[in-house]
Simulated assay, not measured.
Amino acid sequence: MLELDHLIAFLPGPPEPAGPLAGFFLDEGTTHTGQGTRNRRIRFRRHYVELLWIDEPETEQASGLGFAERSARTAFPYGIVLRGTLPEGDFRRYTVPDGPTLAIHQGTPDMPFLAIAELTDEQIAGLPHRHVPPHRSGATGIVATRLTGATAPGPTLPGISLTAEGDPSMRLLLDSGPLRL
């Protein structure tokens, strides 16, 4: 089984909490030690949307993750992190500094970044639901996601559809309505 852990929108800089993000509570985020990135998140009980940008370019370059290209929009600027059983495909192991080991798909720049946090079905069932502040939009979760302008990475992605046609975008269907990033 695979389920959504979080979605990533790679940005050229910190997000503005206006425009489409105005109805959402953005947490303070975190600095990713050893990755050269910083984030803020729109959190829900079982998943979240990570708004990620480069904070330390030299450190990001050394990480080998290719996030600078995604943030500069020279590679597809969205990503998906799932949790569950590793599907078939070309994956490599990456240990997040001071964090878990992920299986990262060895895709091409026109594919979304894809990583899997390997967990058994029993481990997934035992994950707690987070307490999150309410969003002014009323949203409590992601129902479905559509990535446009992306080549599919291969494995079936639960609740996520991809199309190669069009400019890169991420459209979320939340339980309160649509959100485009």
Rank of each mutant, 00 (worst) to 15 (best):
M1G: 14
E3F: 06
H6S: 04
L7M: 08
P12F: 07
P15S: 04
P15W: 01
A18M: 13
L21T: 03
Q35H: 05
G36A: 15
G36H: 13
T37Q: 08
R38Q: 04
R40L: 01
I42Y: 03
R43D: 05
F44G: 06
R45F: 09
V49T: 01
V49N: 05
I54E: 01
E56C: 15
P57L: 10
T59V: 11
A62E: 15
S63K: 10
F67D: 09
F67A: 14
A72I: 04
R73V: 04
R73C: 13
T74N: 11
A75L: 08
A75N: 04
A75D: 10
L82M: 15
P87R: 08
P87W: 04
E88V: 06
G89H: 07
G89T: 14
V96Y: 14
P97R: 03
T101C: 11
L102S: 10
I104R: 09
H105F: 09
G107L: 03
D110S: 08
M111N: 09
M111W: 05
P112W: 02
T120N: 13
L127H: 14
P128G: 07
P128R: 09
R130M: 15
V132A: 15
V132Q: 07
H135Y: 15
G138N: 14
G138Y: 14
A139M: 10
T140W: 10
G141Y: 04
T145K: 00
T145W: 00
T145E: 00
R146D: 02
A152T: 03
A152E: 07
P155D: 11
P155E: 07
L157V: 01
P158L: 01
S161F: 02
S169H: 13
R171C: 09
L174A: 06
D175L: 05
S176G: 05
